[in-house]
């Protein structure tokens, strides 16, 4: 799936550039993007280190476990293939809380940590497990209560009411989440039936 999308993006880009007669755009875009990607990662190094360091403290003090216990019924229902006491549960909760609050740069480190935990119980390394797919579906569509960045952009362009979009945003993310999770659930059911 991803192989095809990746190939499509590249091939269609190159063909269209050739057809428009400015193939040199491809070279500069590709080289610049490669440099940008490394820059994104380097910026991420410090943020990742900071948040995973803080998370380690919270984990050692038992804070993450307490949170996980609190949300246990919900988490067991959402991730039936993960043992209820597995550390992945705590990391998933932290990631989703950060997402809900619109703290994007704190969400990414927790999410990667959750993936690493899920990988420990992945029966087929290199292939996404059921729990990983559910977590991703949840993550990419997560309800946002506070779209802080866009409120800031609106305010900077002198909007009369920068926050009027908060309500629609919450509704739209909630519907996206319901659909994303339902599609994930449908695939999971279908794969189970096939295996029998």
């Amino acid at each position: 799936m991803l192989n095809l999308i990746w190939l499509f993006l590249l091939v269609s880009g190159i063909l269209v550039a050739a057809w428009h007669g400015n193939i040199e755009v491809v070279t500069s875009a590709a080289l610049q993007a490669a440099r940008d990607a490394v820059e994104v990662c380097l910026n991420l190094v410090g943020i990742m280190a900071l948040w995973l360091g803080i998370m380690k403290i919270a984990e050692s003090g038992g804070l993450v476990n307490a949170l996980a216990r609190l949300l246990r019924p919900l988490m067991v229902w959402l991730f039936p293939s993960v043992p209820p006491d597995h550390p992945a549960m705590g990391a998933i909760i932290l990631n989703l809380s950060a997402n809900v609050l619109g703290l994007g740069n704190a969400a990414t480190p927790f999410g990667m940590k959750a993936m690493q935990h899920l990988d420990q119980i992945n029966p087929r390394p290199g292939v996404a497990s059921e729990a990983m797919c559910t977590f991703l579906a949840m993550n990419t569509s997560c309800i946002t209560l506070l779209p802080a960045t866009i409120i800031g952009v609106r305010a900077s362009f002198n909007s009369a009411n920068p926050t009027e979009i908060v309500g629609p945003c919450i509704l739209a993310t909630a519907s996206a989440m319901v659909v994303g999770m339902s599609v994930d659930y449908w695939f999971r059911r279908r794969n189970r039936r096939r295996r029998r």
Partner: peptide, 16 residues
């Protein structure tokens, strides 16, 4: 990230 961003960037910059 390099792989993904290069493909997306080519797709966008070329007008595709």
């Amino acid at each position: 990230l390099v792989g993904m961003m290069v493909a997306i960037s080519v797709f966008r910059a070329s007008g595709a």
